[in-house]
């Protein structure tokens, strides 16, 4: 079976031949398109290391069939910064030591970007922790991750207000 997948990846229109319907979005990114920033942890939707934004919403790429992403917009960690200028969430993770080994970090950052866009957590750290519970960190950097999410969110809100003013 041969199908062509047509989608927007990190702002670029892509056409990819899919020779096997079993390919997940995660394997497509890592094995076919050489975007290895998105990590494969459990490959079963339990750890969140593969989190990407699909049509603007955070999802587990390991549980998403590539073929089902036809016409979709996908944003991965590689598409987040503007050149050398880090996204505020990336900068806040560095500022607050939001990682140690770094393996879960791309998933944590993409999940945080999704959480901020969803706008349900507000500035309540308890709601941030609950909203980030789909991303495991075996180094236990959770305190720094929560602080980073809260600061990045505040900064993004300031930017938005600045643009509106």
């Amino acid at each position: 079976m041969n199908s062509t997948l047509s989608f927007t990846l990190n702002g670029m229109r892509r056409e990819v031949a899919i020779d096997d319907p079993r390919i997940t979005l995660l394997d497509l990114l890592r094995e076919r398109l050489d975007l290895t920033g998105t990590k494969k942890g459990c490959d079963r939707g339990q750890c969140g290391a593969c989190t990407v934004l699909l049509n603007g919403r955070r999802v587990n790429a390991c549980l998403t069939l590539a073929l089902s992403c036809d016409d979709a917009e996908v944003l991965t960690i590689e598409g987040l910064s503007e050149g050398d200028h880090l996204h505020p969430v990336q900068a806040a993770f560095i500022e607050h030591d939001g990682f140690q080994c770094g393996f879960c970090t791309p998933g944590q950052i993409m999940s945080a970007v999704g959480l901020i866009q969803e706008g349900q957590a507000g500035d309540d750290p308890e709601r941030v922790r609950e909203g980030m519970s789909g991303n495991l960190c075996r180094c236990g950097a959770y305190a720094g991750i929560t602080a980073a999410v809260l600061e990045a969110q505040a900064q993004l809100h300031r930017q938005t207000q600045g643009e509106a003013a």
């Binding site: 939707g45 969140g48 989190t51 699909l54 919403r57 955070r58 999802v59 587990n60 549980l63 998403t64 999940s111 999704g114 959480l115 969803e118 909203g131 980030m132 519970s133 789909g134 991303n135």
Partner: peptide, 9 residues
Amino acid sequence: GASAQLRNA
């Protein structure tokens, strides 16, 4: 139930 990522899907 589940996680935010799973609930989004």
